[in-house]
Amino acid sequence: MNANGLDLRIEGLTVIYGGVTALDAVSITVPSGGFVTVLGANGAGKTTLVRSITGLLYLHKGRVRRGSIVLGGESILGKKSPDIVSAGVAQVPEGRKLFPNLTVKENLLCGAASRSDISGIDESLEQNLELFPQLRPLLSQTAGLLSGGEQQMVAVGRALMSQPSLLICDELSLGLAPKIVHRLFELLTEINESRGTSILVIEQNASLALQHAADAYVLELGRVLIEGTADELRGNPMVQELYLGGGGEAHTSYAAIERPGHSRPLEHGQRPPAAES
């Protein structure tokens, strides 16, 4: 594959749903061929970020108020999703979002919807099956009947079918066994290194994401709270406390910890007042 990664520059992005601000002046940069992760809890605005990049906000009645999204020097803000996919952005949506009634093969082919080179599609399909050999016997299986791990592989494969310059993975680890998640992250790194595809990973599982990514951002309540290289973040005591659970485990309670910008910690069970994730 010859698609070189494109760089993504998001500057001062503010997104509202109705009257609720979901993202507030967020600036994130994915360098060409880079591997960036955005960490954050539920409701931090991660999914909104993905929707803004991929042009799907309108399906949720969201609206970009300010800011710019530039992919490889060209603004993709306000473009329709088919054009954005053609420009080189592919995504693995949160919760996989396979087409449940379509077969695995059909799902993969749908990923190539934006391509016009019919012959190249078969080639990509073959590449995918080399990447995920487990899928080969499942090709004519209905996607809705697969296991979670298999579904996630199909979802990643489907995204790769468009030969993206930028691959966005939203909550890859959600509901999957650690072993499978590890394997998927290794694959992402491989794709990143061998094909030069820029990768943006949105994650809750901070320890794993920080292992693989080069740069990282921590998003909270719609703002970028911390940014830096993955190593810097791993060393950051607040990140350790919040997202790495001290001992490197993810998903410990992040509540009851003093953070800048908040006069008091969130109480147990209290949701951050951001919009839907």
């Binding site: 999703s81 979002k97 009634n101 379509l102």
Partner: peptide, 23 residues
């Protein structure tokens, strides 16, 4: 056909279809 496939994809999940570049 490709268009037929895309139509079925939209019927299944409009958002995922849009995310894949299907209009």
């Amino acid at each position: 056909t490709r268009l037929g496939l895309h139509m079925r994809a939209v019927a299944d999940d409009i958002e995922a279809a849009a995310a894949m570049g299907i209009d």
